[in-house]
Design a protein around this nucleic acid. Structure first.
Ligand SMILES: [Zn+2]
Ligand SMILES: [Zn+2]
Ligand SMILES: [Zn+2]
Ligand SMILES: [Zn+2]
Lengths: 161, 161
DNA sequence: AGAAACCCTCTAGTTACTCTAGAGTCAAGA
DNA sequence: TCTTGACTCTAGAGTAACTAGAGGGTTTCT
Protein backbone atom coordinates (compact mmCIF):
# COMPACT_ATOMS: atom_id res chain seq x y z
CA UNK A 1 0.00 0.00 0.00
CA UNK A 2 1.59 3.19 -1.25
CA UNK A 3 1.12 6.26 0.86
CA UNK A 4 -0.07 4.68 4.11
CA UNK A 5 -1.28 7.07 6.78
CA UNK A 6 -1.49 6.51 10.49
CA UNK A 7 -4.74 7.36 12.15
CA UNK A 8 -3.58 10.75 13.37
CA UNK A 9 -2.50 11.72 9.87
CA UNK A 10 -5.81 10.59 8.45
CA UNK A 11 -7.47 12.68 11.10
CA UNK A 12 -5.55 15.73 10.04
CA UNK A 13 -6.33 15.15 6.37
CA UNK A 14 -10.05 14.91 6.98
CA UNK A 15 -10.58 17.17 9.96
CA UNK A 16 -12.04 14.22 11.80
CA UNK A 17 -11.17 13.30 15.34
CA UNK A 18 -9.08 10.18 15.87
CA UNK A 19 -11.60 8.66 18.24
CA UNK A 20 -14.35 9.28 15.73
CA UNK A 21 -12.45 7.38 13.06
CA UNK A 22 -12.15 4.38 15.34
CA UNK A 23 -15.83 4.74 16.11
CA UNK A 24 -16.75 4.68 12.43
CA UNK A 25 -14.68 1.57 12.00
CA UNK A 26 -16.50 -0.29 14.71
CA UNK A 27 -19.80 1.08 13.46
CA UNK A 28 -19.05 -0.54 10.12
CA UNK A 29 -18.71 2.62 8.05
CA UNK A 30 -15.00 2.19 7.53
CA UNK A 31 -13.56 -1.26 6.86
CA UNK A 32 -10.90 -2.65 9.17
CA UNK A 33 -7.66 -1.17 7.92
CA UNK A 34 -4.29 -2.80 7.51
CA UNK A 35 -2.00 -2.78 10.51
CA UNK A 36 1.65 -1.97 10.96
CA UNK A 37 4.11 -4.18 12.80
CA UNK A 38 3.34 -2.31 15.96
CA UNK A 39 -0.40 -2.80 15.42
CA UNK A 40 -1.05 0.75 14.25
CA UNK A 41 -3.85 1.28 11.74
CA UNK A 42 -2.67 2.12 8.22
CA UNK A 43 -4.92 3.86 5.72
CA UNK A 44 -4.66 4.24 1.96
CA UNK A 45 -6.15 6.77 -0.40
CA UNK A 46 -9.47 5.02 -0.77
CA UNK A 47 -10.08 5.22 2.93
CA UNK A 48 -9.21 8.88 2.94
CA UNK A 49 -11.85 9.48 0.31
CA UNK A 50 -14.38 7.31 2.05
CA UNK A 51 -13.94 9.13 5.33
CA UNK A 52 -14.16 12.47 3.60
CA UNK A 53 -17.46 11.43 2.10
CA UNK A 54 -18.75 10.33 5.47
CA UNK A 55 -17.78 13.63 7.03
CA UNK A 56 -19.38 15.56 4.26
CA UNK A 57 -22.61 13.66 4.71
CA UNK A 58 -22.44 14.27 8.44
CA UNK A 59 -21.94 17.95 7.81
CA UNK A 60 -25.23 17.72 5.94
CA UNK A 61 -26.75 16.22 9.06
CA UNK A 62 -27.38 12.78 7.68
CA UNK A 63 -27.53 9.94 10.16
CA UNK A 64 -24.96 7.17 10.10
CA UNK A 65 -27.74 4.90 8.92
CA UNK A 66 -28.41 7.14 5.94
CA UNK A 67 -24.71 7.29 5.24
CA UNK A 68 -24.34 3.55 5.48
CA UNK A 69 -26.98 3.25 2.79
CA UNK A 70 -25.16 5.67 0.54
CA UNK A 71 -21.90 3.85 1.04
CA UNK A 72 -23.45 0.61 -0.11
CA UNK A 73 -23.93 2.30 -3.46
CA UNK A 74 -20.35 3.45 -3.58
CA UNK A 75 -19.40 -0.16 -2.96
CA UNK A 76 -21.67 -1.46 -5.70
CA UNK A 77 -21.09 0.97 -8.56
CA UNK A 78 -23.26 -1.03 -10.98
CA UNK A 79 -26.42 -0.76 -8.94
CA UNK A 80 -29.08 1.63 -10.00
CA UNK A 81 -28.93 4.84 -8.03
CA UNK A 82 -32.66 5.42 -7.72
CA UNK A 83 -32.55 4.81 -3.99
CA UNK A 84 -29.76 7.34 -3.62
CA UNK A 85 -31.92 10.00 -5.13
CA UNK A 86 -34.85 8.96 -2.94
CA UNK A 87 -32.74 8.95 0.19
CA UNK A 88 -31.53 12.42 -0.53
CA UNK A 89 -35.04 13.65 -1.09
CA UNK A 90 -36.19 12.14 2.14
CA UNK A 91 -33.35 13.73 4.00
CA UNK A 92 -34.13 17.08 2.44
CA UNK A 93 -37.62 16.74 3.82
CA UNK A 94 -36.19 15.88 7.23
CA UNK A 95 -34.41 19.18 7.14
CA UNK A 96 -37.37 21.10 5.73
CA UNK A 97 -39.70 19.68 8.37
CA UNK A 98 -37.33 20.63 11.08
CA UNK A 99 -37.01 24.16 9.79
CA UNK A 100 -40.77 24.53 9.77
CA UNK A 101 -41.05 23.26 13.30
CA UNK A 102 -38.30 25.53 14.54
CA UNK A 103 -39.89 28.54 12.95
CA UNK A 104 -43.06 27.76 14.82
CA UNK A 105 -41.08 27.50 18.04
CA UNK A 106 -39.26 30.69 17.36
CA UNK A 107 -42.49 32.58 16.99
CA UNK A 108 -43.92 31.10 20.14
CA UNK A 109 -40.77 31.91 22.06
CA UNK A 110 -40.76 35.48 20.87
CA UNK A 111 -44.35 35.91 21.97
CA UNK A 112 -43.37 34.55 25.32
CA UNK A 113 -40.47 36.92 25.56
CA UNK A 114 -42.76 39.90 25.14
CA UNK A 115 -44.60 39.03 28.31
CA UNK A 116 -41.90 40.42 30.54
CA UNK A 117 -40.33 43.75 29.73
CA UNK A 118 -38.61 44.66 32.99
CA UNK A 119 -36.97 42.48 35.53
CA UNK A 120 -39.09 42.03 38.62
CA UNK A 121 -40.01 39.49 41.27
CA UNK A 122 -40.27 36.04 39.72
CA UNK A 123 -43.81 35.61 40.93
CA UNK A 124 -44.88 38.49 38.71
CA UNK A 125 -42.75 37.54 35.73
CA UNK A 126 -44.96 37.32 32.68
CA UNK A 127 -42.75 34.70 31.14
CA UNK A 128 -43.07 32.25 33.98
CA UNK A 129 -46.76 33.00 34.05
CA UNK A 130 -47.04 32.42 30.32
CA UNK A 131 -45.24 29.13 30.68
CA UNK A 132 -47.56 27.97 33.44
CA UNK A 133 -50.72 28.43 31.50
CA UNK A 134 -49.45 26.64 28.46
CA UNK A 135 -51.64 27.56 25.52
CA UNK A 136 -51.12 25.15 22.64
CA UNK A 137 -51.49 21.49 23.51
CA UNK A 138 -48.66 20.59 21.13
CA UNK A 139 -49.37 16.93 20.62
CA UNK A 140 -46.51 14.56 20.63
CA UNK A 141 -45.48 14.24 17.03
CA UNK A 142 -43.64 11.26 15.69
CA UNK A 143 -41.91 13.27 13.04
CA UNK A 144 -38.19 13.05 12.64
CA UNK A 145 -37.28 16.02 14.72
CA UNK A 146 -34.18 16.43 16.79
CA UNK A 147 -33.16 19.13 19.14
CA UNK A 148 -31.69 22.54 18.96
CA UNK A 149 -28.78 22.02 21.27
CA UNK A 150 -25.51 20.35 20.83
CA UNK A 151 -26.02 16.64 21.05
CA UNK A 152 -23.46 15.73 23.68
CA UNK A 153 -21.74 18.59 25.49
CA UNK A 154 -18.08 17.80 24.87
CA UNK A 155 -16.80 19.85 27.77
CA UNK A 156 -13.16 19.66 26.95
CA UNK A 157 -10.70 19.89 29.76
CA UNK A 158 -8.21 22.74 29.42
CA UNK A 159 -4.85 21.34 28.43
CA UNK A 160 -1.81 22.41 30.36
CA UNK A 161 -0.31 25.50 28.73
CA UNK B 1 -53.51 15.90 50.19
CA UNK B 2 -56.76 16.55 48.48
CA UNK B 3 -57.12 15.29 44.95
CA UNK B 4 -54.20 12.88 44.84
CA UNK B 5 -53.40 11.35 41.49
CA UNK B 6 -51.54 8.18 40.74
CA UNK B 7 -48.78 8.37 38.20
CA UNK B 8 -50.90 7.06 35.36
CA UNK B 9 -53.56 9.67 36.02
CA UNK B 10 -50.96 12.41 36.14
CA UNK B 11 -49.67 11.07 32.85
CA UNK B 12 -53.08 11.35 31.29
CA UNK B 13 -53.59 14.86 32.62
CA UNK B 14 -50.34 16.12 31.17
CA UNK B 15 -49.89 13.97 28.10
CA UNK B 16 -46.59 12.81 29.51
CA UNK B 17 -45.45 9.21 29.55
CA UNK B 18 -45.33 7.47 32.92
CA UNK B 19 -41.71 6.49 32.51
CA UNK B 20 -40.86 10.05 31.66
CA UNK B 21 -42.42 11.30 34.87
CA UNK B 22 -40.31 8.89 36.87
CA UNK B 23 -37.31 10.04 34.87
CA UNK B 24 -37.99 13.68 35.71
CA UNK B 25 -38.23 12.77 39.35
CA UNK B 26 -34.86 11.12 39.39
CA UNK B 27 -33.44 13.93 37.31
CA UNK B 28 -34.52 16.32 40.06
CA UNK B 29 -37.12 18.26 38.08
CA UNK B 30 -40.02 16.88 40.07
CA UNK B 31 -39.71 16.45 43.83
CA UNK B 32 -40.21 13.04 45.36
CA UNK B 33 -43.95 12.69 45.73
CA UNK B 34 -45.93 11.26 48.62
CA UNK B 35 -46.57 7.53 48.56
CA UNK B 36 -49.66 5.48 49.17
CA UNK B 37 -49.77 2.47 51.48
CA UNK B 38 -48.90 0.25 48.56
CA UNK B 39 -45.94 2.49 47.68
CA UNK B 40 -47.62 4.16 44.71
CA UNK B 41 -46.66 7.74 43.92
CA UNK B 42 -49.34 10.31 44.77
CA UNK B 43 -49.39 13.73 43.16
CA UNK B 44 -51.25 16.91 44.09
CA UNK B 45 -52.22 19.91 42.02
CA UNK B 46 -48.91 21.71 42.34
CA UNK B 47 -47.12 18.76 40.80
CA UNK B 48 -49.59 18.68 37.97
CA UNK B 49 -48.82 22.30 37.23
CA UNK B 50 -45.12 21.81 37.57
CA UNK B 51 -45.10 18.91 35.15
CA UNK B 52 -47.25 20.83 32.71
CA UNK B 53 -44.73 23.64 32.78
CA UNK B 54 -41.89 21.22 32.18
CA UNK B 55 -43.66 19.68 29.22
CA UNK B 56 -44.43 23.06 27.78
CA UNK B 57 -40.79 24.05 28.02
CA UNK B 58 -39.79 20.77 26.40
CA UNK B 59 -42.22 21.42 23.61
CA UNK B 60 -40.26 24.63 23.10
CA UNK B 61 -37.13 22.51 22.83
CA UNK B 62 -35.46 23.70 26.00
CA UNK B 63 -33.01 21.37 27.66
CA UNK B 64 -33.69 19.93 31.06
CA UNK B 65 -30.88 22.11 32.30
CA UNK B 66 -32.59 25.23 31.03
CA UNK B 67 -35.83 24.06 32.56
CA UNK B 68 -34.20 23.33 35.87
CA UNK B 69 -33.03 26.92 35.94
CA UNK B 70 -36.51 28.20 35.25
CA UNK B 71 -37.97 26.00 37.95
CA UNK B 72 -35.61 27.48 40.49
CA UNK B 73 -37.36 30.78 39.88
CA UNK B 74 -40.77 29.23 40.32
CA UNK B 75 -39.48 27.90 43.62
CA UNK B 76 -38.13 31.29 44.71
CA UNK B 77 -40.88 33.71 43.71
CA UNK B 78 -39.16 36.69 45.33
CA UNK B 79 -36.05 36.46 43.24
CA UNK B 80 -35.56 38.92 40.46
CA UNK B 81 -36.48 37.40 37.14
CA UNK B 82 -33.75 39.01 35.07
CA UNK B 83 -32.09 35.66 34.48
CA UNK B 84 -35.35 34.20 33.28
CA UNK B 85 -35.56 36.81 30.58
CA UNK B 86 -31.93 36.24 29.70
CA UNK B 87 -32.34 32.49 29.55
CA UNK B 88 -35.26 32.82 27.23
CA UNK B 89 -33.35 35.14 24.97
CA UNK B 90 -30.45 32.76 24.84
CA UNK B 91 -32.73 29.91 23.98
CA UNK B 92 -34.37 31.94 21.28
CA UNK B 93 -30.96 32.41 19.78
CA UNK B 94 -30.31 28.67 20.02
CA UNK B 95 -33.37 28.19 17.88
CA UNK B 96 -32.55 31.01 15.50
CA UNK B 97 -29.00 29.74 15.01
CA UNK B 98 -30.27 26.30 14.26
CA UNK B 99 -32.75 27.62 11.74
CA UNK B 100 -30.01 29.50 9.95
CA UNK B 101 -27.80 26.45 9.85
CA UNK B 102 -30.57 24.25 8.56
CA UNK B 103 -31.41 26.69 5.82
CA UNK B 104 -27.83 26.55 4.70
CA UNK B 105 -27.98 22.76 4.68
CA UNK B 106 -31.24 22.74 2.81
CA UNK B 107 -29.76 24.82 0.06
CA UNK B 108 -26.69 22.67 -0.19
CA UNK B 109 -28.80 19.52 -0.27
CA UNK B 110 -31.01 20.86 -3.01
CA UNK B 111 -27.99 21.72 -5.10
CA UNK B 112 -26.77 18.21 -4.58
CA UNK B 113 -30.11 16.79 -5.59
CA UNK B 114 -29.92 18.56 -8.91
CA UNK B 115 -26.83 16.61 -9.85
CA UNK B 116 -28.74 13.47 -10.71
CA UNK B 117 -31.91 13.72 -12.76
CA UNK B 118 -32.44 10.13 -13.87
CA UNK B 119 -31.67 6.91 -12.14
CA UNK B 120 -28.57 5.25 -13.51
CA UNK B 121 -25.59 3.17 -12.50
CA UNK B 122 -24.30 4.33 -9.12
CA UNK B 123 -20.87 4.97 -10.51
CA UNK B 124 -22.29 7.68 -12.72
CA UNK B 125 -24.66 9.15 -10.16
CA UNK B 126 -24.00 12.85 -9.87
CA UNK B 127 -25.05 12.85 -6.26
CA UNK B 128 -22.50 10.32 -5.13
CA UNK B 129 -19.96 12.14 -7.23
CA UNK B 130 -20.91 15.45 -5.67
CA UNK B 131 -20.57 13.97 -2.23
CA UNK B 132 -17.12 12.61 -2.98
CA UNK B 133 -15.63 15.88 -4.02
CA UNK B 134 -16.93 17.73 -1.01
CA UNK B 135 -16.76 21.42 -1.72
CA UNK B 136 -17.10 23.42 1.47
CA UNK B 137 -14.74 22.45 4.23
CA UNK B 138 -17.42 23.13 6.84
CA UNK B 139 -15.26 23.50 9.89
CA UNK B 140 -16.43 21.88 13.03
CA UNK B 141 -18.45 24.52 14.79
CA UNK B 142 -18.94 24.54 18.48
CA UNK B 143 -22.31 26.22 18.23
CA UNK B 144 -25.28 24.77 20.00
CA UNK B 145 -26.63 22.78 17.13
CA UNK B 146 -28.41 19.51 17.39
CA UNK B 147 -29.61 17.21 14.70
CA UNK B 148 -32.49 16.95 12.37
CA UNK B 149 -33.58 13.47 13.25
CA UNK B 150 -35.39 12.12 16.19
CA UNK B 151 -32.99 11.92 19.08
CA UNK B 152 -33.40 8.28 20.03
CA UNK B 153 -35.33 6.20 17.58
CA UNK B 154 -38.14 4.95 19.80
CA UNK B 155 -39.22 2.19 17.47
CA UNK B 156 -42.40 1.35 19.27
CA UNK B 157 -43.65 -2.16 19.16
CA UNK B 158 -47.13 -2.49 17.70
CA UNK B 159 -49.53 -3.25 20.51
CA UNK B 160 -52.11 -5.94 19.98
CA UNK B 161 -55.18 -4.34 18.45
C1' DA C 1 -60.90 -15.93 43.89
C1' DG C 2 -58.79 -14.94 39.67
C1' DA C 3 -57.48 -11.94 36.07
C1' DA C 4 -56.68 -7.51 34.12
C1' DA C 5 -54.72 -3.34 34.74
C1' DC C 6 -52.01 -0.80 37.17
C1' DC C 7 -47.73 0.23 39.87
C1' DC C 8 -42.84 -0.67 41.70
C1' DT C 9 -37.37 -0.89 40.97
C1' DC C 10 -33.55 -1.78 38.22
C1' DT C 11 -31.17 -2.35 34.07
C1' DA C 12 -30.00 -1.72 29.42
C1' DG C 13 -30.56 0.37 24.92
C1' DT C 14 -30.91 4.44 21.68
C1' DT C 15 -27.35 8.35 18.63
C1' DA C 16 -22.97 9.79 17.53
C1' DC C 17 -19.74 10.49 19.53
C1' DT C 18 -16.16 12.06 23.64
C1' DC C 19 -13.20 11.11 27.45
C1' DT C 20 -10.51 8.36 30.47
C1' DA C 21 -7.31 4.77 32.08
C1' DG C 22 -3.63 1.81 31.50
C1' DA C 23 -0.69 0.14 28.38
C1' DG C 24 2.35 -0.41 24.11
C1' DT C 25 5.22 1.81 20.02
C1' DC C 26 8.32 4.86 17.85
C1' DA C 27 11.35 8.76 16.77
C1' DA C 28 14.60 12.01 18.42
C1' DG C 29 17.54 14.21 21.99
C1' DA C 30 21.09 13.97 25.90
C1' DT D 1 21.86 3.81 25.40
C1' DC D 2 18.48 5.66 27.86
C1' DT D 3 14.80 8.56 28.20
C1' DT D 4 11.42 11.62 27.01
C1' DG D 5 7.48 12.79 24.48
C1' DA D 6 4.23 12.17 20.95
C1' DC D 7 1.65 8.94 19.17
C1' DT D 8 -1.11 4.63 19.21
C1' DC D 9 -3.74 0.59 21.19
C1' DT D 10 -8.04 -1.54 23.76
C1' DA D 11 -11.79 -1.43 26.73
C1' DG D 12 -15.10 0.93 29.27
C1' DA D 13 -17.81 4.71 30.93
C1' DG D 14 -20.27 9.04 30.10
C1' DT D 15 -23.35 12.41 27.40
C1' DA D 16 -29.26 13.93 26.58
C1' DA D 17 -33.59 12.62 27.21
C1' DC D 18 -35.77 9.40 27.29
C1' DT D 19 -37.82 4.26 25.99
C1' DA D 20 -38.34 -0.65 26.71
C1' DG D 21 -38.05 -4.70 29.32
C1' DA D 22 -37.66 -8.02 33.23
C1' DG D 23 -39.47 -9.59 37.35
C1' DG D 24 -41.98 -8.55 40.67
C1' DG D 25 -46.10 -6.26 43.97
C1' DT D 26 -51.02 -3.85 44.28
C1' DT D 27 -55.69 -2.61 43.08
C1' DT D 28 -59.74 -3.29 40.90
C1' DC D 29 -63.17 -5.61 38.39
C1' DT D 30 -65.98 -9.59 37.74
ZN1 LIG E 1 -32.31 12.47 7.17
ZN1 LIG F 1 -39.46 38.32 33.83
ZN1 LIG G 1 -31.69 26.54 24.50
ZN1 LIG H 1 -28.34 9.26 -8.96
Amino acid sequence: MRNALKIGELAKHTGCDVATIRYYEQAGLLPKPARSDGNFRLYGDSQVERLALIRRCRSLDMTLLEIRTLLRFCDAPERNCGDVNALLEEHISHVADRIAELRRLEKELKNLRRLCQDTQAAKHCGILEGLSKGAAGSRRRKALVGHVHRAHAPRRKAKSA
